[in-house]
Amino acid sequence: MSVEAVSWALNDAPDVPPSCLAVLLGLANHAHANGRGAYPSQERLAHYARKSTRSVRADLASLERLGIIRRGDQRHVAFIPVDRRPVVWDLAVERTRPIPTALDRFAEPVSGRSAEVPQPVDNRAEAEFRAVPNRAEAQRTTAGSTAQSGRKPASYKPSLNHQEPTTRAAARDGAGSSVDAGSNRIASPKDQPQTSARRGWEPPRGAALPPATGDARCTKPGHVGQPAGSCAVCRSEALGGAA
Rank of each mutant, 00 (worst) to 15 (best):
W201H: 08
V233N: 14
V87W: 07
R54E: 10
L25K: 06
V224A: 13
F106M: 14
K157W: 12
R57P: 05
P133S: 12
P193R: 05
E94W: 03
V121N: 11
Q163R: 01
R105W: 09
S19D: 00
E64C: 12
N29M: 06
I186P: 03
A131K: 11
S52L: 01
V87N: 08
Q226C: 06
I69W: 07
H223T: 00
V179W: 03
V82R: 10
E202L: 08
R57W: 14
P203K: 11
V77G: 07
T53H: 14
A102H: 14
P17G: 03
A197R: 06
A125K: 11
L27M: 06
S145W: 02
P204Y: 10
R54K: 12
D215M: 10
A107Q: 11
A78E: 13
Y156N: 13
R54N: 13
Q74H: 05
G176Q: 04
A49Q: 04
P14I: 05
Q119P: 09
D12T: 07
W8N: 00
R75F: 13
V6I: 09
K157D: 07
Q163H: 03
R97N: 02
A115V: 08
P189W: 06
V82N: 12
V16Y: 07
V233C: 08
E94A: 07
R235H: 03
A143C: 09
P40R: 02
A207R: 11
E128A: 14
V224Q: 12
V6L: 11
G174L: 06
Q42D: 12
D191Y: 04
Q139H: 15
P153D: 03
S236H: 00
G206H: 05
L66Q: 15
G37F: 10
V6E: 02
S7F: 04
R135G: 05
R199S: 05
V179C: 03
D191P: 01
A207C: 05
G206Y: 13
L25H: 05
A147T: 12
H76F: 13
A212C: 12
A170I: 14
N29K: 02
S52M: 03
P118L: 10
R140D: 08
G72M: 13
L209Y: 09
L45N: 01
V6N: 00
Y39A: 08
S155C: 05
I186W: 06
R205I: 13
N134Q: 12
S188M: 10
T101I: 14
D173F: 01
P81W: 00
P17W: 09
P189C: 02
E108T: 12
D59H: 11
R199N: 07
R57Y: 11
A49I: 02
T101Q: 14
C218P: 01
V77T: 15
L91S: 00
E4T: 14
P153C: 10
S178D: 05
G150T: 10
A22T: 04
V82D: 10
T142P: 05
G144T: 11
W8G: 01
D73L: 06
W89S: 01
E94R: 03
E126P: 09
A131L: 11
S230P: 09
H32E: 15
A28H: 02
L21P: 01
P14L: 00
A38R: 02
V88T: 06
P98E: 09
G176K: 09
G222R: 10
S149D: 15
